[in-house]
Write a protein that binds this DNA or RNA. Structure first.
Lengths: 138, 138
DNA sequence: ATAGGTGCAAACGGTTTGCAAATAG
DNA sequence: CTATTTGCAAACCGTTTGCACCTAT
């Protein structure tokens, strides 16, 4: 979490308590949350913050690469905490926890796709749903 | 396309010219389009239709299972023509064409995921980006 | 003839923005 | 002290809805 404030200082932006708290929620929850949900979580903790600040902070975190977004079919946008490199999200259906997973096995898939229908794979977006190890031990 | 009007009749809904045209655009374009984009395409063809009718028709088509939606990161929702069973979309980056692909190779991925981090895969959403066979022969 | 569809304009809800007051550095 | 951030309220924009009129069956 401290690297975030370093990154901010490096760009001439301030590392405020408010921003720290938004990042904190994302870091702790590790699941997809809308700006509204994040705002509610903060308010529930007795923290006073405006919804617009939540939006502005999220935009900032996405810019720093420490949060990723996803468009929901409802038209809302949700955010997760994430580390930097290319990876995918395994979303637990029970607790909502998001784990990051690599995409190694996709090489084989790409080969089949090219052979099968001549489609040249360049990039991919994957969301996986299931039960994380904690929830599997019901 | 005619099955659509049969499905509608079966549910006591009317198969109108307007609905036919929205379905037609999706069927021809075979790429993700927002309601707004579909409306513009129709208007460009000299067809008079209101944006609300486009929305209502799309909702209907999704209900029939002949269209699928995707939430864009902008907060917009886009629609593609699609057939019924579970499958994924391979989106061509050049022409935007959407091809449907199966998900067989994922079984191996699921096994690795369980072995590696104890994540029990139950479902998945995948979007693939690249160049379709037509665009590969540049 | 009647159930269902359409267009219009207004409402809705998530997101963004302008601006004055507050705060980090 | 100055640049940046924050809250508020208003604006924005994609989507949905109520209602009077129109159309398919």
């Amino acid at each position: 979490m401290n690297e975030i404030s370093d990154q901010l200082h490096g760009k001439g932006r301030y590392a405020t308590r408010t921003r720290e708290r938004v990042a904190q929620v994302l870091h702790e929850e590790r699941r997809y949350l809308t700006a509204h949900a994040i705002h509610e979580l903060l308010v529930a903790r007795g923290i006073s913050i405006s919804l617009s600040t939540v939006y502005r902070t999220l935009e900032l975190l996405v810019g720093l690469g420490v949060a990723a977004t996803r468009g929901e079919e409802s038209g809302e946008i949700s955010y997760v905490f994430c580390t930097v490199q290319h990876h995918h999200h395994a979303v637990c259906r029970m607790c909502g926890r998001v784990e990051e997973v690599g995409c190694g096995p996709l090489a084989r898939f790409a080969r089949d796709l090219r052979a099968g229908q001549g489609f040249e794979l360049e990039d991919h977006a994957i969301e996986l749903y299931g039960r994380c190890s904690r929830c599997t031990k019901h």
